[in-house]
Simulated scan of single mutants.
Amino acid sequence: MGQRGKLTAEIEYRSGGDVFHELFRFKPHQISSISPDKVQGCDLHEGEWGTAGSKIFWKYTDDGKDKVMKQEVEAIDEEKKSIVLKALEGDVLEIYKAFKVSIGVTTTGDIDLVTWIVEYEKRKEDVEDPLNELGLLIDLTRDIEAHHATRP
Rank of each mutant, 00 (worst) to 15 (best):
Q3S: 11
G5Q: 09
A9W: 06
A9E: 14
I11H: 01
E12S: 08
S15V: 03
V19N: 04
F20T: 00
F20R: 00
L23M: 09
F24L: 13
F24E: 01
F26I: 05
S32A: 02
D37G: 09
K38W: 00
D43V: 04
L44I: 11
L44Y: 04
H45N: 15
E46K: 14
E46Y: 10
G47S: 10
E48A: 14
E48S: 14
A52Q: 12
A52G: 10
A52E: 13
S54Y: 05
K59S: 13
Y60N: 07
Y60M: 08
Y60S: 08
T61R: 09
K70C: 10
V73W: 02
A75C: 08
E79M: 11
K80L: 13
K81Y: 00
S82F: 01
I83V: 14
L85M: 15
A87P: 05
E89T: 03
G90L: 04
G90V: 02
V92P: 05
E94L: 11
I95L: 09
Y96L: 05
A98Y: 05
A98G: 05
K100Q: 11
V101G: 06
S102Y: 03
G104D: 12
V105D: 02
T106A: 11
W116F: 03
I117V: 15
I117S: 01
R123D: 01
K124I: 06
K124N: 09
E125G: 05
E125F: 01
E125L: 09
V127C: 08
V127M: 10
P130F: 04
L131K: 10
L131V: 09
E133C: 12
D139W: 11
L140S: 04
T141I: 02
R142P: 07
E145S: 09
A146V: 10
H147N: 13
H148P: 01
H148N: 11
P152L: 13
